[in-house]
Amino acid sequence: MIWLKAGGGFTSNLSKAVRVARADTINMIGSCGQTGGIAWPCAYIDAHSRRLVQPDDVDIKEALRGTSIVPPKQQKPRMMMFNCHGCGRFISDRQRFENNCRNCGADNRP
């Protein structure tokens, strides 16, 4: 959201936004209406605004401490396993290409 500054420009910083007295609201609505803006009550904005934080400045473990939120653990990628064409034993992708099956000697290269 962008806010109207006192000088007539716009800002994304809520603390720099102009605060208009209730008596001057009609004049402000007139000037905001030309740019497509909408006048909101300060009490409403203050009640619903929250501070923005950059993700690099936050430690997730520290931020979630004291809450019941548990982030999911990242799973290790599983090694691809194949069955030997000759005997059916499990062999890895690496074993498929490096040498024949140690049990039956079958060539398992695709």
Rank of each mutant, 00 (worst) to 15 (best):
residue 1 M to E: 04
residue 1 M to H: 11
residue 1 M to N: 05
residue 5 K to H: 05
residue 7 G to H: 13
residue 10 F to G: 00
residue 11 T to D: 04
residue 12 S to C: 02
residue 13 N to M: 07
residue 13 N to W: 03
residue 14 L to E: 02
residue 16 K to P: 00
residue 16 K to N: 10
residue 16 K to A: 08
residue 18 V to Q: 14
residue 18 V to R: 14
residue 19 R to K: 14
residue 20 V to R: 11
residue 21 A to E: 11
residue 26 I to S: 02
residue 27 N to F: 12
residue 27 N to H: 13
residue 28 M to F: 14
residue 29 I to N: 09
residue 31 S to D: 04
residue 31 S to R: 15
residue 31 S to P: 03
residue 33 G to Q: 12
residue 33 G to L: 02
residue 36 G to Y: 11
residue 38 I to N: 03
residue 39 A to W: 09
residue 41 P to D: 15
residue 42 C to W: 11
residue 51 R to P: 00
residue 52 L to D: 05
residue 52 L to C: 04
residue 53 V to F: 15
residue 58 V to P: 01
residue 59 D to P: 00
residue 60 I to Q: 02
residue 63 A to S: 06
residue 64 L to C: 08
residue 65 R to W: 05
residue 66 G to A: 07
residue 67 T to Y: 05
residue 67 T to M: 04
residue 67 T to S: 11
residue 69 I to L: 05
residue 69 I to A: 00
residue 71 P to W: 04
residue 74 Q to P: 00
residue 75 Q to T: 01
residue 77 P to N: 02
residue 77 P to E: 08
residue 81 M to P: 00
residue 81 M to D: 03
residue 82 F to M: 11
residue 88 G to R: 12
residue 88 G to V: 10
residue 89 R to S: 06
residue 95 Q to P: 01
residue 96 R to P: 01
residue 99 N to W: 09
residue 100 N to R: 15
residue 100 N to D: 13
residue 101 C to T: 08
residue 101 C to P: 10
residue 101 C to W: 08
residue 102 R to V: 02
residue 104 C to V: 04
residue 104 C to R: 00
residue 110 P to S: 09
